[in-house]
Simulated scan of single mutants.
Amino acid sequence: MTKTAFADAHAPQTEVHAEPSDSIDTMYLTFPIGTELYGVSIGVVTEIVGLQRIMSVPDVPRYIKGVINLRGKVIPLMDVRLRFGMPEKAYDDRTVVIVLQVSDAPVGLIVDGVNEVLDIPASQIDRTHSFSGAEGRSLVMGLGRLEERVAILLDVNLLVEDDALMPPATVEA
C-alpha cells in the first residue's frame, strides 16, 4: 500500500498529485467523516479547495448546501455528513471541498478534511452487496482493508445521483 500525502490540504487550492502507480484505478483519496475513514477514486477528483463563500439555492435537499463559483465554473456542493444522515457540524479550518468530475459535471463534496491518497489493490478490497438498499444499490462500493483500519470506498456516481445536483435541462423552443 502506497501513501501519498498532500502538500497542504488546507491551503485555498491544492492540485491532486499522486505517486506513480501501476493503475490509477487502485488509487483512492481518503478523508474522515466523524470517526470513519472514507475514500473516493482519485480518477474523478480534480482538485481540493478550501471552503469559500457558498451561495444558497432554494428548494434543494438539506444536504445540498448551495453552489460556489470556482474560476468561472458554478459547482454544486454536497455536505457529505448530511448526505449520510449524520449530525451537522460547524465548518472549521480543516473543512475542505473535494471537487469531482462526475458524468461530465463538476460536483463538490464538503468533508471534515482530507488524509492522503492510498494505493489499495483490488485484492485488499472486500466488495459487499450486503449494504444494498431497497433498490439493490449502495453508496458503498467496497471496504478497503488497510493495516489497522478500514476505508469505506464510495461509489461517487450513486453518491451524487440526484436531480438537485444536475444542471437544469436546456429547454428548446
Rank of each mutant, 00 (worst) to 15 (best):
99 V>A: 04
103 S>T: 11
27 M>R: 06
98 I>V: 13
32 P>R: 06
21 S>W: 11
127 R>M: 11
100 L>A: 00
149 R>C: 06
111 V>A: 01
30 T>M: 04
12 P>W: 05
165 L>M: 13
140 V>F: 05
125 I>D: 03
137 R>V: 12
82 L>M: 08
100 L>F: 00
128 T>S: 14
36 E>A: 13
143 L>C: 06
49 V>F: 01
151 A>E: 01
117 V>M: 13
144 G>V: 01
78 M>Y: 02
159 L>K: 04
70 L>D: 04
89 K>W: 04
113 G>Y: 12
68 I>Q: 03
125 I>E: 03
138 S>T: 09
40 V>C: 07
120 I>H: 04
56 S>R: 15
91 Y>D: 08
69 N>T: 15
67 V>K: 04
108 G>N: 03
31 F>W: 06
129 H>F: 14
93 D>R: 14
160 V>T: 10
61 P>W: 02
44 V>I: 14
6 F>I: 15
171 V>S: 09
13 Q>F: 15
3 K>V: 12
72 G>R: 06
23 S>R: 05
118 L>I: 09
133 G>I: 05
25 D>G: 10
58 P>K: 09
128 T>E: 12
16 V>E: 00
149 R>I: 03
70 L>T: 01
158 L>R: 11
55 M>F: 08
24 I>T: 14
111 V>L: 03
129 H>G: 15
1 M>S: 09
17 H>M: 14
6 F>C: 14
121 P>S: 07
107 V>N: 01
46 T>K: 10
161 E>D: 15
134 A>K: 10
82 L>E: 01
140 V>S: 06
54 I>Q: 02
51 L>S: 05
58 P>Y: 07
42 I>A: 10
100 L>S: 01
114 V>E: 02
32 P>N: 14
84 F>H: 10
167 P>A: 08
152 I>R: 06
25 D>F: 14
34 G>V: 08
143 L>F: 06
131 F>S: 13
19 E>V: 12
74 V>N: 03
155 D>I: 07
170 T>N: 09
13 Q>R: 09
146 L>T: 06
8 D>G: 05
19 E>H: 10
140 V>Q: 06
46 T>I: 15
123 S>Y: 06
81 R>Q: 05
2 T>W: 10
166 M>P: 03
168 P>E: 02
131 F>D: 07
9 A>L: 09
111 V>I: 06
85 G>N: 08
6 F>A: 13
132 S>M: 11
55 M>E: 10
10 H>G: 12
147 E>K: 15
104 D>G: 05
124 Q>V: 06
110 I>F: 02
101 Q>D: 14
85 G>F: 05
103 S>F: 05
59 D>C: 10
112 D>N: 08
146 L>A: 07
113 G>P: 07
164 A>S: 10
120 I>P: 00
123 S>E: 14
37 L>A: 13
99 V>Y: 04
44 V>M: 13
143 L>S: 10
139 L>R: 09
118 L>D: 03
59 D>I: 13
122 A>I: 11
108 G>K: 03
9 A>F: 12
78 M>G: 03
105 A>I: 08
112 D>I: 09
169 A>W: 08
93 D>A: 15
64 I>E: 03
158 L>K: 12
76 P>L: 05
23 S>C: 12
56 S>V: 15
31 F>Y: 08
123 S>R: 13
3 K>R: 12
134 A>N: 13
110 I>S: 01
125 I>F: 00
125 I>H: 02
71 R>F: 08
16 V>R: 01
